[in-house]
Nucleic acid binder design. Sequence first.
DNA 1: CTGGGGATGGGGCCC
DNA 2: TGGGCCCCATCCCCA
Length: 753
Amino acid sequence: MIIKGDLDRMAEEIGHPGIGLKSMLDAMEVPSHARHLLLQLNTQRTKGFLCDVIIVVQNALFRAHKNILAASSLYLKSLVVHDNLINLDHEMVSPGVFRVILDYIYTGRLNEGDPTSPTEPNIGAVLAAASYLQLLDLVTLCKKKLKRNGKYHLRPNPGFLPYKIDPSGMGGRRFRISPPVIHSVVSTHRPIPLEDLPPLPLPPHGGEIHAPAHTQGPPPYPPTKASLSPQSGLRLAPTDRNCSSVYGLDLSKKSPQSQHPSGHPHLISSLHPEEEPEGELDQSTSPLLSPNDGSRKMEAAHHAGSLTPHPFPLPNHPLAPHLPHLHRSQGQEPYPCPPSPEPMEDSREQGRDGSSIYRWVKNEPSNPEDEDEEDEEDDSGGMGEQDKERHHQHMNHHKNSEEKLNMSERGYDRGTCDDAEDENGTGSEETGSSEGRPSPPVPGGRYHMPYEPESFGDNLYVCIPCDKGFPSSEQLNAHVETHNEEELNNGSELDNNSSKPTNAHGPTSFNSTSGLHSPFLDNKSAQNLHSIGLGEIIRPYRCSSCDKSYKDPATLRQHEKTHWLTRPYPCSICGKKFTQRGTMTRHMRSHLGLKPFACDACGMRFTRQYRLTEHMRIHSGEKPYECQVCGGKFAQQRNLISHMKMHSSGGAGGGLTPDGKLKMDFSEGIYPLSKYAAEHLGLKQEKTSDLFAASQHLLADAKVMESLYPLSKLAAEHLGLTHNKMDILNPSLPPTSQQLSAESRTIDRYSPS
DNA sequence: CTGGGGATGGGGCCC
DNA sequence: TGGGCCCCATCCCCA
C-alpha cells in the first residue's frame, strides 16, 4: 500500500518535491491498467497458465489463480489459502453457475447467458451461489439486475436451491449462511456439523450417479456459446481427457520433467495420496453415502497429512529405512512366535530384505477383531434390507466362527493339541495365526522359545530355529546358509520333517501334515489347505457365492461385492464402476493426473507407491526375480511372469530354447512341480528369501531332473546346484555365457559377506 | 517383420 | 482406507 509519505518521497525522487498527493496520482495512474491486468489474467486462466488451484464442481473442473479468487471473496480466500484443489458442493453451485461466476471474477462482467434457456443458469441461481461464495459485489450486481428486470425473486431452478433467497441478502436468517459445504483436499476447516449439511441430492440421472451428464442424459448445460468458450470449465469425459492438458492437468503417461516438483510446488503438495479429493468428489454426489460419511471425510481431511511438498511420503518411502511395523505394541505380545499358518502373508513385507522365512520380530499382525468391530459399525449404517439379511447371516457365521476360533485358541493356550500328528504341539497354529497368536512351528520342529524382542537389541533379524538375532538381513542370510547346509546334508530327513519348507510348495506336499505346520505357507498354499478341508479353520469366513474364504469378515464383505450385479462405487468423472472404493479413488487419480510418488533419481512420477518401488529397481539395478529355468533376472515380477509364459509356450516340455537352454512346459503337466516352483519360488522371490528360493528349487528341480536327467539329479544332490546350473554339467546342454555369469552372480550373492 | 525384454498403466483383490 | 500384490494390456526398444 502506498501511503502519503511514500508518494512525497517518490515525488522528491523524481524531482518534484512538494507536489500534491492528488496531482501525484493523476500523474502516475494508467487508467486502463486494471482492465489490462484483468484481461491478462483471464487470458492466462483460459490457457491454464500459472493456474494454481483447481475447483471441482460436480463433474466439471475449473482452473484458476489463487490470488484472484482470494481477492474476490473472503470465503474463497479461506479455501485457497490451504488447498490447491477445492470441491464445491454442486447443490449450492452448479457447474454452469460457477462458470458464470468465474467469468465474472475475471472480467467484472456478469454474463447471464440466455435467460430463456431452461438450463442456462439464471440470475437467481447466480445470486444464490454468489451469496454462498461470499462474492458481495456479484450479489449486489445480481440484485440490481433482478430489480431492473422486475424479477427480484428467486426463479425456480429445479434441483438447485433448496433454500429460499432472502431479499435482504446475506443477513437474512432464511438465507443459507451456514458454512458452505466445500470439500477440499486438505481441508483445515472444522468438520461440517451434520445439521449444516444440505439434504442429500437425488440421483441426478435416473438413479445413475456420478455418470457424466453427456453420457447419461441431456447435458445440463448445453453447449451454448458461453459454455463452449475457453472460459468454461473443463468437463472431463473419456473422449476429451486429452484436452485436459490445455488446462494444465497432466494426464499423460509420463510426467514431464517440467512438472516435476519444482514446477508446481503447491499443486504437487496436493498430490499427496492422503490429500487427494476423490472421496470428496464421491461424497458430494453419492446417495450411497450418508451425511455421516461426508462428515467423517471432512474430519479425515481435517486430520490429513501435512502440505509438505516432499515427493516421498516418508512413512511409505521405499528407500526409507526399514521401520518396524508396530501393528501391536510389543507389550501385548508376550510370546511373539514365528508366523504361522500364513506366514507368507507377513512375509510380503519381510521378504523385502530376503529374510522372510525368519520372521522379523517386530512385524506382528494386527488384531483383526478390533478392526472388525469398527468395520461392522460402519457398514451396518446405511444398509438395505438385502444387505441386512446378508449382514445378519454373516454375523451369525462370524459368531460361530469366532467361537471356533476361541475354542481353538483356548486349546492352544492350555498347551493342548488335538492334532495327533503334531508332535510339537503346534496343531493349533492355524487358528492362532488368524489372530496373530503364537504358532510355533519352526524349521527343525522346535518350539520357538518365548523371548522379548528388545532382548535382541539392534539384531532385529532373527533366525527362528536358533533364536539368534542379526542386525541385517544379509547377516541373517549368511547365518541361514549354515542351516541350509545342515538340512541338505540331512537329505531325505527333510521330507518328513515339519521344519521342511520345501514340499509346502509342491502339490504332493499337502498329503503330509508336515506341510500344514510349515511356517512358509503362502496364500495359495493356504487355499490348498482350504481345499483339503483344513482351511475352514484358518479362513472361517466363506463366501456364499463362491468357495473363497477369508480370515476376517470385512474382507469377506469386500469380496462379496465382486458378486454384486451393480458395482457400488462409480467414478464421478467417467462413470466406470468399481467394487471397492479404494479402486475407484485410485482410478480417479488417473483422471486428475495425481501422481504423488516421484522418483528421486529421474523425477518420474507414479500414481502408486508400489510402482515407484518397482521403478527404483531400474536405478538400483536390482533384479530380484530370477527365472528358474534359464537364470534370467528381472527387476519386475510381472516381467518374469511374462518371461515364464515364453518358456511355457514353447511347445513340448523339456525342450531346448534356441540358445540351448532347458525349456519346461508348465502347461502340459509334464513338470507340475516346476509350476509350483515357478509360482511359489521363482516368481515370488520377493516373498521368499533368495536363499529359501534357492534351496527350494534346488530340491524341486532335483525331482524333475531325476526324471529328465538322472545324472543331473545326482549333481544337484551332491553339488547343490539348481537345474539351470545342472545343465551346465550335462554335456548335452552346453552352458551359455548368461548361465555362467548367472551362476557366478548367484555364488556371489549367497557367499557370506 | 517378429519376438523378447524393459517399463508403465490400470483394474481386481486381499490384507 | 490405504498398502501391497497379482494379473493383464500396452508401448517402446532392440536384436
